[in-house]
Amino acid sequence: MREKPSSAQEAREFIKGYSAGHATTVGSVLVTNLKTGARKGGFDTAEIYFHKIPDEVIENLISEGDVLYVAGGLMVEHPLTSPFVDQVVGTIDSVMGSQKP
C-alpha cells in the first residue's frame, strides 16, 4: 500500500518500481445512515501496466514536483508518464480515485 511519497527519494523508488511492471489501485466508499445505522459500501479496482520508464523521465517528474503530492507518487494521465502506460485494465477514473457508480 502506497501513500504520498515522503520524499523525492521515495517517489523515485515508487516510480522505478512501476517501470516495466504493474500496479493495482483500490478505491472504496462506505456510507452510513446516521439515523438507522445502515451501511452500504463498495470498492473498485484498476490495474496499470507500464513500459520501462527512463531515468530521465523519472528525474523530470520529480523535479516538476507534482508526484510528491499524489498517492503512489505517480499520475498515469501526466504527459510525461502517459507514453509509458502500456495498458489500463479498468477505467482511468478508477485509477484516479474518482470512480462513478
Rank of each mutant, 00 (worst) to 15 (best):
K52Y: 13
Q99S: 10
E56W: 08
E59H: 05
A46C: 08
E56R: 06
E10N: 07
V89A: 04
D55C: 11
Y18D: 01
T91N: 02
G97Q: 06
T45I: 06
Y69S: 11
G17Y: 01
T24E: 15
L80K: 01
K40H: 12
G72H: 02
K52N: 11
F50T: 00
Y49R: 12
M75F: 07
H22N: 13
V95H: 00
G27E: 04
G37D: 14
V70L: 03
F50M: 07
S98G: 05
G73S: 00
G27P: 01
T36S: 13
I92W: 06
N33V: 08
P54G: 04
G17C: 04
A46R: 04
D93T: 06
M96Q: 07
V26L: 10
E59C: 09
R12Q: 14
D86Y: 06
L30V: 14
Y18I: 00
I62F: 13
S6A: 13
V88H: 02
P101V: 09
S19Y: 03
G17N: 06
E64W: 08
I15K: 08
Q9L: 09
V29C: 12
L30Q: 05
T45N: 15
E3H: 12
K35L: 12
K40Y: 11
G17F: 10
E77N: 00
E56Q: 10
G37F: 03
P5G: 09
S6P: 08
K52D: 10
E64L: 14
S94T: 06
S63D: 04
I48A: 05
V67F: 03
A8W: 07
I62V: 09
E59Q: 15
L80N: 02
S6M: 14
L34T: 12
R39F: 09
Q87I: 06
F43H: 14
E10T: 11
K4R: 12
